[in-house]
Each structure stands twice: as C-alpha cells, then as structure tokens.
C-alpha cells in the first residue's frame, strides 16, 4: 500500500530540517519504541558519565594520596562492614569501586569507539573503492576480507595483540597497551565494514543517479564521495553500533585474558579479571559491579543497534 504517490504542491514552502526529521519514519519508529528510547538514553548517560568521571567520581583511583590499603576489600555500603563513603565497596588495593568503574568504563568506551572508528574508516574506504572500481582491485581487497572473515575476530585480535606486544620492548609495553588493543580490534573489524560498504556500493552504483553523474562527466572520486558514500551510511551505521558493543566485549575479553589494558589503569575487563581472583574468597563485589556495568553498557548499545537495524532497513518493516 505504498503505491499512493506523494503529490506535493511544489510551490508550497518546503519543510525545515527539524520538521523533516520529525516527519521521518525513523524518528517516528524511535519515539514509538520505548526500548529504543531507553537504550539511547542509557547509552548517552553512560557515555557522558564515563567521560565526566574526573568530575563526578567520588575519588580519583589513580591518585595514591587518596588510596589507603587499610580501606581495602571493604564491602558495599549497605552490607555489614561497609562504609558510607564507598558506596560499592573497595577493591583489594583500597580503591573506591564506583570511581574505578567510572574511570574503567571511560577507558572501555574510548577503546571501543577508537577501534570501531579505525575499522570503519578502513573498511568503508576499501569497501566503497572495491565496489566502485571493481575488477582486480575489488578481487584482491575482498579476497583478503574473506580470508580474514573465516577466522573469528576475537582470535585474530588476541593474535594481533600478542604479536604487537611481542614487538614492543617490555619497558613501554604497558604504556602502549591501549594503542595495541585499539589497533588489534580495529584491524579485526574492517572486513565487516568493507563487505557492507561494498554491497551497498554495488547496489548504488547500479542506480541511475550514479550513471547520470557519470554522464555529466564527474570524476570517479567525486562520485564516490558525494553520491555513493552518503547512500551507504545507513547500513554502516547499524554495523558500527553493533560493532561498538562487540568491540567493548573484545577489549574486556582481551583484558580479562591478561592481554589487554594493564591493572595500573584498569578497564572494566581488567577490573573483572582482578576481581575474579577474589571471587572464591567471598569478595563478590569486586567482580560483580564491573561485570554489571559492562553487561548493561553492552546491552544498551545492542538494544539500540537492534532497533536501528529494523528501523533503517525498510525491507523489514
């Protein structure tokens, strides 16, 4: 029943950008899907809270002056033996759990976003070029992507990360660990983006507006940049959102395996790893709270990605 043609009076005043957004199907789907709104709100709040960690965290876990081993292993405030100033308790070194989670979350989100950004730029760039230029270049790029896709990302990330660490001299290994992790996850991400971008490019390049641009005489790079790229962004955005969730998990997994972010500047994964060692002795809060923070963050991003996939894919409606 979409056959009813839009019949606008071209002389009428065109709607403003805001009005266009408000009228769009995506916006309508957003405001009529409570889970999407909650997920979006939560994601935004979580990201803001983590980035504002230095402002809102009760303690600075990296300031030795604020840490006292005497306050180590304190349970949450509502449990017997807990202290009111440490709402979620303290870890083995006496750092406030809430503060470390905020700072750790910031690190996890930064690593996730940077890794997805790297994978996206690399993948979309190569994918659009492969799809538009075609021929041997396409074959080479996509063959590499195919080969890489057969090996699961997390394994590859462990491997690249391991090799990267082995390259670095031990003295600076910890300092550069975060960049190695970003590169490792980013490099495992790109084939997804390349595939999606190439697929969308092939579809778009067949469309007559691209042929019209070629008949006008526009050069290939301008057609890719101005015409094709903007039209491939929808599926890329979906992949990027789901990719962010996966990248946060990948970083946490690497850190949990002891291959990622070092305990001196812990991410959520590092916190869980450290806490895991105390789990059997009953200090459950050191693991549980970072784990909850991680899962809720990933869940919110996934929920958003799930809604986006449905809302941005008109075929599924």
């Amino acid at each position: 029943m979409s056959a009813v043609e839009p019949r606008v009076d071209p002389a009428a005043k065109p709607p403003s950008a805001w009005a266009r957004l408000r009228e769009s199907d995506v916006f309508h789907s957003f405001v009529s899907t409570p889970s999407a709104m909650i997920a979006a709100a939560f994601t935004v709040i979580a990201i803001l809270a983590c980035f504002a960690a230095p402002l809102i965290a009760p303690f600075n876990p990296f300031d030795p002056a604020q840490i006292s081993l005497w306050d180590g292993k304190l349970p949450p405030a509502w449990v017997e033996g807990g202290q009111a100033q440490y709402v979620l308790g303290t870890d083995n070194q006496g750092r406030d759990m809430l503060s470390t989670i905020l700072y750790g979350g910031r690190l996890s989100i930064i690593v996730g976003m940077a890794a997805v950004g790297l994978g996206m730029v690399l993948g979309v760039g190569l994918g659009v070029i492969a799809g538009y230029v075609g021929g041997a270049l396409d074959a080479v790029i996509m063959r590499i992507a195919d080969v890489q896709l057969t090996i699961p990302g997390i394994l590859l990330a462990i491997l690249i990360n391991g090799i990267g660490r082995a390259f670095l001299p031990p003295e600076i290994r910890e300092e550069f660990a975060i960049y190695v992790v970003i590169i490792a996850i980013g490099l495992t991400d790109w084939p997804q983006f390349a595939r999606v971008a190439r697929g969308a490019t092939l579809v778009e390049a067949q469309k007559e507006y691209v042929q019209a641009a070629r008949v006008i005489g526009l050069p290939g790079w301008l057609i890719m940049l101005r015409h094709i790229l903007p039209n491939t962004l929808r599926p890329v955005l979906v992949i990027a959102t789901i990719g962010l969730a996966l990248a946060v998990i990948a970083e946490a997994t690497l850190s949990f395996l002891g291959q990622g972010i070092p305990p001196t500047t812990p991410s959520l994964g590092t916190l869980i790893r450290v806490g895991n060692e105390y789990l059997f002795s009953g200090l459950w809060w050191i693991t549980l709270f970072p784990a909850i923070a991680l899962v809720v963050l990933v869940f919110a991003v996934n929920l958003l990605g799930d809604w986006m996939r449905d809302a941005l894919n008109p075929k599924l409606r």
């Binding site: 469309k207 007559e208 507006y209 042929q211 019209a212 641009a213 008949v215 015409h227 039209n231």
Partner: peptide
C-alpha cells in the same frame, strides 16, 4: 541522458 526509473535516477 534521461533514465527510466524516476525513483533511482535521483540521489
């Protein structure tokens, strides 16, 4: 050139 499909011929 003017193309066939009015839906895909405009960006």
């Amino acid at each position: 050139m003017i193309f066939q499909d009015p839906y895909s011929s405009l960006n």
